[in-house]
């Protein structure tokens, strides 16, 4: 029981971390990024390569992979998203355009990964030693994944809530059309939010690679779960993403432990649907 709770928190922490990235991209940059999960998986593969080929620990590889995720997303925004942002007459048109463009991007990233790594299940063994916490046995890699997720997520929340820069981000999230009136460069802010979202995706990928098996095609599931967490938590809400991520992780772990591991995705969907019907604006979203 207690063991499942900790495992659920680990999974939920990872989901929350990844979903925070997506909520930045969707809530602030207004890009619905369907290739988000594939960025996560690409980072997981990068951590795998750094670990097996160079013997670099995932903690160190964060220093390489996270900036790479930032740079990649920065580039994608400048190259693909910015023209779409410019041409779209309203946020609805941008939503559709970005969904379509990132749907294409999903296949590109997946294709590249497939060429490089093939379609097999991949994992590596790092800190795979049991630790005893109050009687429950948990692998050290899972524990460090949880701590990492908490540190990274916490740092982001502090940045957004306590700094001037964070204020600018939140202003754009609330109203992209009136932010320029107070001197905020919306495109620049959006690009930054999109890139940081990418950096979070990358960090999530590294964290996931520490304790999970993954394949080239697992990206879709991560995108899906991150989207569900974002919607559950309320678009653009970091505390919402945190709460919803933890709920999702716990539910999945308990469903896998007590019902059937094959039904975790179905249970995720069920929660999602129930929430959409009962509280369409999300746990922490404001009623429209």
């Amino acid at each position: 029981m207690f063991e499942h709770l900790i495992n659920g928190l680990v999974l939920g922490g990872t989901y929350a971390l990844v979903a925070m990235g997506l909520t930045l991209q969707y809530g602030i940059a207004r890009i619905m990024n369907l290739s988000f999960g594939d960025t996560v998986i690409a980072a997981a593969f990068a951590a795998y390569v750094l670990f097996t080929a160079l013997g670099l620990s995932p903690l160190l590889s964060l220093l390489i992979v996270v900036p790479a995720g930032f740079a990649f997303s920065y580039g994608i925004f400048s190259l693909i998203m910015r023209p779409l942002v410019r041409r779209s007459a309203n946020s609805e048109a941008l939503e559709v355009d970005s969904i379509l463009a990132t749907f294409g991007l999903l296949f590109v990233i997946q294709g590249v990964l497939l060429v490089l790594f093939g379609g097999n299940f991949t994992s590596y063994s790092y800190l795979n030693v049991p630790v005893d916490i109050l009687g429950a046995v948990v692998a050290l890699n899972r524990l460090s994944a949880l701590i990492l997720a908490a540190v990274l997520g916490g740092a982001l929340v502090l940045l957004l809530m306590r700094t001037r820069w964070g204020l600018r981000m939140r202003a754009v999230a609330i109203s992209a059309s009136s932010a320029p009136l107070v001197g905020i460069n919306v495109i620049q802010t959006s690009r930054m939010a999109f890139a940081i979202g990418g950096a979070l995706a990358a960090s999530g990928g590294v964290v996931i690679s520490m304790y999970q098996t993954f394949t080239v095609t697992s990206g879709v599931v991560f995108t899906m779960k991150a989207l569900i967490v974002v919607i559950m938590g309320g678009k653009g809400s970091l505390p919402g993403a945190l709460a919803a991520g933890l709920i999702l992780g716990l539910v999945e772990t308990f469903v896998a432990a007590y019902i059937d591991p094959g039904l975790t995705l179905a249970s995720t969907y069920l929660i999602f649907l129930a929430l959409l019907l009962l509280r369409p604006s999300g746990l922490f979203g404001k009623a429209s």
């Binding site: 693909i80 023209p83 779409l84 355009d97 379509l100 463009a101 749907f103 294409g104 991007l105 999903l106 296949f107 590109v108 990233i109 997946q110 294709g111 590249v112 497939l114 060429v115």
Partner: peptide, 17 residues
């Protein structure tokens, strides 16, 4: 056969644009 998905995705992005 190996680069199919990459080309596909690229073509799609072009179409959207």
């Amino acid at each position: 056969p190996n680069h199919y998905s990459i080309i596909l995705g690229g073509i799609f992005i072009l179409i959207v644009f």
